[in-house]
Design a protein around this nucleic acid. Sequence first.
DNA 1: ATGTAGTGTGAATCAATAA
DNA 2: TTTATTGATTCACACTACA
Lengths: 371, 371
Amino acid sequence: MTTTKTKKGAAALPLNTIVDGDCIEAMNALPAGSIDLIFADPPYNLQLKGDLHRPDNSRVDAVDDAWDQFSSFAAYDRFTQDWLAAARRLLKPNGAIWVIGSYHNIFRVGAAMQNAGYWILNDVVWRKSNPMPNFRGKRLTNAHETLIWASKEEASKYTFNYEALKALNEGVQMRSDWVLPICTGHERLKNEAGEKAHPTQKPMSLLHRVMVATTNPGDVVLDPFFGTGTTGAVAKMLGREYIGIEREANYREVAEKRLSKVRKFDKEALQVTTSKRAEPRVPFGQLVERGMLNPGEELLSMNGRHKAKVRADGTLIGDDIKGSIHQVGAKLEGAPSCNGWTYWCFKRDGKMVPIDLLRQQIRAEMTDRPN
Amino acid sequence: MTTTKTKKGAAALPLNTIVDGDCIEAMNALPAGSIDLIFADPPYNLQLKGDLHRPDNSRVDAVDDAWDQFSSFAAYDRFTQDWLAAARRLLKPNGAIWVIGSYHNIFRVGAAMQNAGYWILNDVVWRKSNPMPNFRGKRLTNAHETLIWASKEEASKYTFNYEALKALNEGVQMRSDWVLPICTGHERLKNEAGEKAHPTQKPMSLLHRVMVATTNPGDVVLDPFFGTGTTGAVAKMLGREYIGIEREANYREVAEKRLSKVRKFDKEALQVTTSKRAEPRVPFGQLVERGMLNPGEELLSMNGRHKAKVRADGTLIGDDIKGSIHQVGAKLEGAPSCNGWTYWCFKRDGKMVPIDLLRQQIRAEMTDRPN
DNA sequence: ATGTAGTGTGAATCAATAA
DNA sequence: TTTATTGATTCACACTACA
């Protein structure tokens, strides 16, 4: 648990360890621009007044720990600004952050993130499939929490594994509302007395989705409010490097024990569906160079309305319009843009075949990449 | 439309009318402590860059109206503070407010509400059953908006019709996430040219739920950003009094016309919130996220002839074939299609168990209504 | 070197309603 | 039955030329 690797060209990072200390001081001690993703579950600043009882008179074990107490909105805002600034310094230019919270704190946190220069990409609703009911019937069942996903700045080229998430969602685009159960059963860590080890342990499924969505294997993930280490456990399983910061010795101990038992999934399983965008670019001219299409050959538009001739340099000419497969397609259709690969077809055995098929042939010949 | 009743012991209110003017000035002209509920749909402060096109090259008709433009966060915050203060003055001591927004503005609005002394009761997620997709595949589908429900102050004895909401929700406590379709079809108001009359018309079902939950018949409901008057229409139907404020003559005109046609207790309108139930769709990836199956684990086909490994994103890999449980099953069997849920099994206690069993477990846990 | 503006290529959609 | 339309959107990126 105390392995500290040194990355090529970067200052030493305490990878795969739990740092003891206050999160702001600990973050300030780490090298700037070294972190790919931050996952933060800061204190919610709950303001509970008295005990809450269930209809059967049993007492609800609520969050009333000292670390969740702030004297005022101003004090909470100051704390929030400070840790968000420290976190932002640590992020690589293309790094990103996730913060989770409830209505008690998330609006203040979100506004502070915008003020600090973070660029919000989505807010995500974690819809709990098994929330605690509102026993008194005075409000709606508080059945969700909110996550904010933001990049370090507007210009950041953040990681988003679109296809992997689409795959996770049975082939349709993943939405901003996620239905996942809260952490219960044997996933919920208990102490010797059988009490829950941490009052707000997050489910691994939530972290799993966050990391599959916005990190790649080998990325460095920091959790400044580590608690019992759910972030670390999922990072380790998924082949990401983690750094945890936690000031309570008790939580650190539970987390250490937990992490020592986690094993990484094998490499093949960690591979994830990638998008076409990541596939090697094939210039249209290559189809001509390779003789898959001949200069002078005629292409037909998908809808059959237009024709164009292939020229030796990989451009098309049709109706006096010359240019790339995309340009000519767009002009003929009067559209702002056009994907020529799927627009143009050629004839083979009397059938219309899109030229994209030829591109796929070339790609298949190219070195088999793991992703 | 210009009936002005005088309530016992209260200054004259322009009940059931649309006030022409800037919302802050108009609110300041109304008597303090006279309003039961405020519903506010303020500008979202969207910051659009250029045009967005669908994959079929059609242009998305985005919200780019002048009323949604602010020069900076500071300008937006000032505006927000001002209208929230004016609104709070109007509320009765036990009055309440609803504000709707998206991630562009809702965090700033929520923080400003807390700073102004409002007491947040719930944040509610309006989960859209038919949102616009993310065409570029660069983020999650933005499939929800957030509402904040708050009382005038912490001590307020706010209205909450617990049993009515429970009845609306088939006998179980209403949760903080509401699934409702966006406003389309004949409910969506159009101008003579057939274009939408307002870019962001809210569905009546949403207002219906808000008013059933937090007002009583005869209550006075104020909407300072009236638009085409959905708040007024629902208030009238449900026997509440409304006051609208709207500065755009065009919207006022559409709203007047609309409201003149609305009749109280229109049965058809009351049925808006009821909808069909379907079996919730469970993506296979959720079994992986939730640890019911692990990446790298082997699945066997029902007939025992094929094997495949589970990957972290919920796809399978077997004999170099990658894809969904359905795709891989179909390929391996040489069949046009295959129901992966009943095709694939895993081993438990030496027995072959179809993965569909795990899906049934998840469905049983889901207490939320799909529609 | 470092940054910015301009240009060329090319990737990308779900659910509901209306026609 | 099939096809067309549409909705609160902070929705690309790599490369070159030039300051």
